[in-house]
Design a binder for these strands. Structure first.
Lengths: 209, 209
DNA sequence: GTCTATAGGCGGATAGAC
DNA sequence: GTCTATCCGCCTATAGAC
């Protein structure tokens, strides 16, 4: 039966991808062992090479998937019928939600890109991110021109929001070590920040009437 | 002559350390090749093992040195006779200056700690960072109690400041790719942020009188 | 202290049976 | 599709001459 055949194939392939994502994002390309990935997927090393040509190709698949996920949240800014204030709030919430679920993601993408900048071109061949960025830019400029928010550099605004959302996730190990929070406490600390980040940004931005 | 002997010894050792720092912070522990470090230091691989027992020990030396540097800027907050506003401003400036000079530092420390949390205990055995943190905490609480600044979580305040300073450095490759800035432009962009970060934080913090 | 040459092992990749 | 066994190259580490 074709269906049963292809279902089982997808399932193993997906288990490998999940395992590879876990190991690669945690250890990086060179730190990851094919054996670790095989163990995590409950198969043996040979199977990895049945589904993926080699380590490099498996890595590429995972990287592109995860990098896409990291940047896709930008959509929230440029789509929908929300007010600018609501966009910021939604964006902050989505950034923190996504990365709380998969905390190794941002550091992984950031580190691999620094080691090998060529990954950027390869990955964003398909994703028209430049377009999203300029849409964001005109959105901000429009808010400025109608007097909703003060004059501000759109690039810097976006960077500030992302920094405030993402940094606490990537610095979790160090910050928890210093503050003696356990994982539960830290999750709740991060979650409370959804409001304080939005407040910090909007208080600085919106012109009081 | 003892002096000439020890001078040359230090000099080679220091060249190795500089080379190792460059390669390790760029590629990470597993991504770094002893050959790359030797090339960078203009010696051969065997010499590395003359001065350092093995790769792991060389890494440990570099990591501890760089991690110490990353955290030492906290001193600025708890020492000196500055006002709270000045402390923030000085701290922002020092963070950005330090990391602009050596942009691979923060991502390196963050990533290696995530891969191997045990590095934290080993590194901060000698550095009484907990003390600095609680000094920072009482500094903030004092400002609150005298009515200088609004009620705020000291942990979150510190995290916000560091996030705004450090994230632009670690996200440089991606952000420059998206914004089409060259290195000069990005340096200047980062430098302008010294003022805007301080303004963002203090406007949110200080109570207008 | 510095070099060349080489040992030794780890880990990615493949052959081949089932 | 899945497994075991094995190959082979790369990279750390060392031996040993100078």
């Amino acid at each position: 039966m074709v269906k049963a055949f292809s279902m089982s194939e997808v399932s193993t392939q997906e288990r490998i991808k999940a395992a590879a994502a876990k190991v690669f994002t945690m250890k990086g390309l060179e730190g990851a062992r094919m054996q670790d990935i095989a163990d995590e997927a409950n198969i043996n090393k040979a199977m990895l090479h049945y589904y993926f040509k080699n380590k490099q190709q498996l890595f590429q698949v995972i990287f592109e998937e995860k990098a896409t996920k990291v940047f896709s949240a930008l959509d929230l800014f440029v789509h929908g019928e929300l007010s600018f204030h609501q966009r910021i709030s939604k964006f902050v919430e989505s950034q923190i939600s996504i990365f709380s679920e998969f905390p190794t993601l941002p550091l992984f993408v950031l580190m691999e890109v620094r080691k090998n900048p060529a990954l950027l071109e390869a990955t964003f061949r398909n994703i028209p991110l430049q377009i999203k960025r300029s849409e964001f830019q005109s959105l901000v400029e429009n808010e400025i021109s109608v007097g909703n928010i003060r004059k501000v550099d759109p690039q810097e605004l976006l960077l500030n929001i992302i920094a405030l959302c993402v940094y606490p996730i990537i610095a979790e190990p160090i910050f928890r070590f210093l503050s003696d929070m356990d994982e539960i406490e830290y999750r709740s600390f991060i979650n409370r920040r959804k409001d304080t980040i939005t407040a910090l940004i909007t208080n600085d931005l919106f012109i009081k009437k």
